[in-house]
Design a protein around this nucleic acid. Structure first.
Lengths: 233, 233
DNA sequence: CTATAATTATGTTTTAGAGCACAAAAGTAG
DNA sequence: CTACTTTTGTGCTCTAAAACATAATTATAG
């Protein structure tokens, strides 16, 4: 089937890390078992408390992993870009999801059953090591993030978020407009502040000529100064 | 050597999870390579920025994993009890330590070279899966913690910390006095608040008959209400 | 095209928690 | 024992950020 071929081709070329260690036989196992799912803008992919069954690979679009906390507040924990894997942690920990996932934009996701993945892991040590490495990296990021979110001031957190968005999703052809168009609310949820503070601080940054804003288009003007603001908190 | 025998015996009996998957041969490899190190109260075990070389297993004592952030503030990220493994994440991620570790109390730590561990992992899939599971569990905890620390109010965070300490290190024979005696500063660093707020809130809790305090001895009196305070934030 | 809802913007008020000051108590060292 | 440092306790002040209020703008739906 052509469609499946194309997807597999895309995966194998883009995300060597997981695919590469596999033997031909193992690849063909996965090839028969994956499913493709499309999600609309803002559509929920999985919820906190759901039972994990599939590892997901984002083929196109943008996805947020978030957590609803106390008092109606939401924290965006991570953001996924093509072609990254997600949604596997809970299965490995033998837990239900502690986070939820939703699509920022129309997204296409490829899903592999986790029981197959674990079988492949037990046969293929390289694959196991891929997950060890990935989880280790993510845990380090989580630790850094905890301290940033709890200790930095609003300006520092917002500056950090803007720099992260550039780092993660890149910029348009002009070289400075962030490629992701977030609502102020999402930006607030990413940087642990209220929506009004995200709006206000963004305006202040614009006044200080650190950025320019045109609706949801954000252009980073003075990245050096943003880095400084992010660093000192 | 008797000493080494004893340590290995302790490890193999207490922490089956890592030791159990190993073959006799693999066990004997580790047996020849480990070293034992003692740390005094408050002694630093490793620092942020250090290069990781050994996985550590806490044989006795209590250890904090912490991170110094902006403006001289410190966040305690996790706490280790016997017989748990730690200090391996950075090596797997091919990074330097992003946290530091110190002993709360006189502690004895057994160290295995990480290069040996990775060799054993590549030979032994069960061992790989142990780390996948452990890292997955820790990442889930980190996510939960981020939201607690950023969204809950002081009372909620302190209540959560107290309940965690009971959960993690247990209580004395009376069934309610926490077995760990923390300074107010450590308690503050654990629950993301200033020392004076930890002291103050602890006093308030005592006035509300949720706990009793006698120096560093903390007795949990009304655990149900503490849980409620922790939950609602 | 119009009505309705959602998002963005800005100003004002309120408050949780940091910051500071100082004293008492408890450790620690000489 | 005495001197000195660290930790604990309490009160007071100040401020960063939340909460609230109200427009203005922009989407979205019927």
């Amino acid at each position: 089937m052509l469609r499946r071929e194309m997807v597999l081709n895309e995966i194998s070329s883009s995300i060597a890390e997981l695919w590469q260690p596999l033997t031909t036989e193992q690849r063909s196992i996965l090839a028969t078992e994956f499913t493709i799912q499309r999600f609309k803008k803002n559509e929920i992919i999985y919820c906190e408390g759901d039972k994990p069954t599939h590892i997901m690979c984002l083929l196109s679009g943008k996805v947020k992993i978030y957590k609803d906390g106390v008092g109606g507040r939401t924290q965006i924990m991570r953001m996924i870009k093509p072609v990254e894997y997600f949604a596997y942690r809970a299965y490995f920990a033998n837990e239900e999801y502690v986070t939820a996932a939703a699509a920022f934009e129309p997204s296409v996701i490829c899903m592999f059953p986790m029981d197959t993945i674990t079988r492949l892991i037990s046969e293929n040590n390289q694959l196991a090591q891929f997950f060890i490495r990935q989880l280790s990296i993510d845990l380090g990021i989580a630790d850094e993030r905890t301290v940033s979110l709890t200790q930095k001031h609003i300006r520092g957190r917002l500056a950090e978020a803007l720099l992260f968005l550039k780092e993660n999703y890149g910029v348009e052809e002009d070289g400075s407009t962030l490629s992701i168009y977030l609502s102020r609310e999402d930006l607030a949820n990413l940087s642990n502040m209220t929506t009004s503070n995200a709006i206000r601080t963004l305006s202040i940054f614009a006044n200080e000529k650190l950025i320019t804003i045109d609706g949801r288009k954000i252009k980073l003007i003075d990245e050096e100064r943003l880095k400084k603001i992010s660093k000192i908190g």
